[in-house]
């Protein structure tokens, strides 16, 4: 029930932004459509509603995760620009395997997205039962599981553990 209310608020907020500036008619239609979407989709999206009223998690998300993510994203772009502009294409690609300790769906999704947008790595598949990630790495420095885990996963895992677990 709680996750349905939160989903309703989120969809209604997105609707308000989409139909900016909101007036009376837009808001009525938005309430009807949000209620319908929540009625159909129900509990699909928010798996752990007990974490939502813990304000320190939002604080960690804004202070720890977002600046690190933006900085890594910018570095990734400079990295790609360097590799593309270099006349001999300095790439050494391969798919490596990394372990993760995260369990929840939201945590794994954010971890995979962060890996894709950080320098030189892109997540290809997740094996949720064994806690493995298969990561395509454009410049393989360390082919065994332990080294790849240290280099790719650890930095974001430490932050995401405090937010989603």
């Amino acid at each position: 029930m709680k996750s349905k209310i939160i989903l309703f608020l989120v969809t209604f907020l997105v609707w308000c932004f989409l139909s900016w500036v909101p007036d009376f008619q837009h808001i009525i239609i938005g309430i009807v459509i949000s209620a319908f979407v929540v009625f159909m989709m129900g509990d699909l999206f928010i798996g752990t509603p007990q974490l939502i009223n813990q304000p320190q998690r939002y604080w960690y998300f804004i202070v720890d995760y977002v600046p690190v993510f933006l900085w890594e994203c910018f570095k990734a772009n400079l990295d790609v620009a360097y590799r593309v502009l270099h006349p001999r294409l300095p790439i050494k690609p391969g798919i490596v395997k990394a372990k993760t300790k995260l369990k929840t769906d939201a945590g794994l999704t954010f971890l995979a997205n962060s890996i894709t947008l950080t320098p030189g790595t892109m997540s290809v598949d997740i094996d949720k039962d064994n806690g493995c990630l298969y990561v395509h790495w454009i410049n393989v420095k360390d082919a065994d599981v332990k080294g790849a885990t240290e280099t790719i996963v650890r930095r974001f895992e430490r932050i995401l553990e405090r937010i989603f677990e």
Binding site: A76, V80, A81, L85, L89, P93, T116, G120, M122, I138
Partner: peptide, 22 residues
């Protein structure tokens, strides 16, 4: 740069890296 990577890099996975990030 993303479009340039799409042309220059050799296979699907490297091209996806360049295009997605940039």
């Amino acid at each position: 740069f993303g479009c340039l990577g799409l042309i220059r890099l050799p296979d699907v996975y490297n091209r996806l890296q360049a295009s997605t990030k940039c």
